[in-house]
Design a protein around this nucleic acid. Structure first.
Lengths: 181, 181
DNA sequence: CGACACATGTAACACGTTACATGATTTG
DNA sequence: CAAATCATGTAACGTGTTACATGTGTCG
């Protein structure tokens, strides 16, 4: 639902047309989540179908404008007033993957963790690179990037935590094995 | 793709049937991401369509078993050896929401941040409650829960960071306003 | 003119999700 | 026996995503 509401939010300022929406949306999340233009049109069609937006003529240069309806404004308002619940989020593929990896036989969990950590580290470096090369300071853009950094760091910490846990468990197992000898 | 590969992974041990897959999958992620049984069947159909699993008769009690094909084993193996890229993840609705909130006029960003923080805090409490009430120690289950906790904490930190940033910017604006007087 | 970017769509598909229909089996 | 649970499936829908078709305008 993030694109849906995102596009809706961009119409708050006033009518916009397709490509304009794409560039304004991307400008705040670019390099991380590029948005295909086609998606803007499909999403806008669905928003129109649901009565949240409506055509608003053109801007004098043939650009087909969209604007919020009353229902759209209400929907948007409800969005602002409702927190994004953690329970409602998509499944975390990495968490599931690692959880299954420690369960299923024949998986080199340690290798998996190391590979993942190095990839996540790479992403973090990419983020700092982006931050440094930022053309002009943009608050929205910076906050999104900060979110990614915070998440990436949390991921690294979690991976370390998992590895420590695995080592501890392996240590315990070895210990018990030793006792048995 | 997490359900797809998750179910695939559960077949590593040997053939399983629908409901069994659901309960084994849910056992490792339960209370956070319940999995509808119907979804198991639709997903297994698609996996069969793609040649990654195949029917394997029944277990003597009429349970329709599925098992991995060679292609399935290969696909799974590739999954284990490939990190989950941060770039490939779904858009972060919260990040986008806040980024748009600071851009669009008429949104009470501060209220949004506070509401979000209190909801995330609630989730974190729920996680610790779950951890305490855990019936029997299960490594996979614990790691998933730890992931959620790490993510939740990162989210809180990010929200604090955003708020501080907003306050600072507001302070700067006030200062400049003061200078102008 | 030819190449390129802008602009608007549409068609097709993937995955996740829910609701529903149907039996079989167990249990109070 | 009735109710609950287990089990298998299907139909329908929603969003996200890509690829393609098409037209217009601009610039070297």
């Amino acid at each position: 639902m993030s694109i849906r509401h995102g596009l809706l939010a961009l119409l708050t300022d006033g009518p916009r047309y397709g490509n304009q929406l794409r560039s304004e949306f991307e400008h705040r999340t670019a390099a991380t989540w590029p948005l295909n233009v086609g998606q803007v049109y499909t999403t806008m069609s669905r928003l129109e179908r649901d009565g949240l937006v409506e055509p608003a003529g053109d801007d004098g240069e043939g650009h087909a404008l969209y604007q919020l309806t009353e229902a759209g404004r209400a929907d948007l308002d409800a969005w602002w007033r409702t927190p994004v619940r953690r329970e409602g989020r998509p499944r975390d593929e990495l968490a599931i993957k690692l959880a299954l990896a420690v369960t299923v036989p024949g998986v080199d969990v340690r290798a998996l963790v190391q590979l993942q950590r190095s990839d996540t580290t790479r992403s973090l470096q990419e983020y700092t690179r982006l931050k440094a090369n930022q053309p002009e300071p943009d608050l929205a853009w910076q906050l999104v990037l900060d979110a990614l950094v915070f998440q990436g760091e949390a991921e690294i910490r979690w991976l370390d935590h998992c590895e420590a846990r695995l080592t501890r468990d392996a240590g315990l197992a070895r210990e018990q094995l030793g006792r048995r000898d």
